[in-house]
Design a protein around this nucleic acid. Sequence first.
DNA 1: GTAACCGGTAACCTACAGGAAACTATCATC
DNA 2: GATGATAGTTTCCTGTAGGTTACCGGTTAC
Lengths: 122, 122
Amino acid sequence: MGTIDIDGNRQEATCKQELIAMRDSLEILGGKWKLMLLRYLSNRLEEKNNFKKIQREIEGLSAKMLAKELKDLELNLLVSRSVVNTKPVTVEYRITPYGLNVLPLSENLVQWGLDHRAQIKR
Amino acid sequence: MGTIDIDGNRQEATCKQELIAMRDSLEILGGKWKLMLLRYLSNRLEEKNNFKKIQREIEGLSAKMLAKELKDLELNLLVSRSVVNTKPVTVEYRITPYGLNVLPLSENLVQWGLDHRAQIKR
DNA sequence: GTAACCGGTAACCTACAGGAAACTATCATC
DNA sequence: GATGATAGTTTCCTGTAGGTTACCGGTTAC
């Protein structure tokens, strides 16, 4: 029945889990291009987003990084990849319904960044 | 009166600014210890948070990194540093009122991390 | 047959983040 | 005058994120 020890441990565990969760988020979303890709895809739900098209439209993004970031996002179920039987073969990337959950977070980051820039200018 | 060109440019600029703002946020808050430090300080508003005390209580955090992260946070007005005339001299770090604005964002990251861990387990 | 498109991969390189350990300087205590 | 506390700094080292360039295998169009 909740000795100080047990409560202490439980609270500490929860706190550690929170920190782990926070690092998870930063690790999974924190690459140079990941959030940018998710925002890009979320703005183009109706389009066919092929590998080359994405690379062409996001300036500075190399094939290697694009492939890697997309793989990471796919592993985390945030993006889906499907090969289409066109000639030559094309691959379509889409943000998943689950991936759309990242958008509020991304909006918060944008907002904080904008506010902060204003704050620092003072 | 809003030609296509003007609207197009305005929208593009806004979009770019959003991406810049997002990267700003990740850069400023994205170090290994920064958000952790802010959470730590926000949980100890009543205490005197000296350098050594912080270092002792956050496991794995070296003096070098602590000094660096605190400096960065101070530059961004998120943390305040004040030297106290004790013997030997002590330094008190506090999260600023402005710094408290980061907490909702941090909570969102924690929540997303927790949710995501649950999602991946399935 | 050769040039151009697709979706990548492989090899190499650099810069920076971050860790470990030793060191500095000041003051207090014993 | 040695020990230990304060708050850092300095030096050295390593791992990795990310960029550059070249390349591959398949298909179509000229």
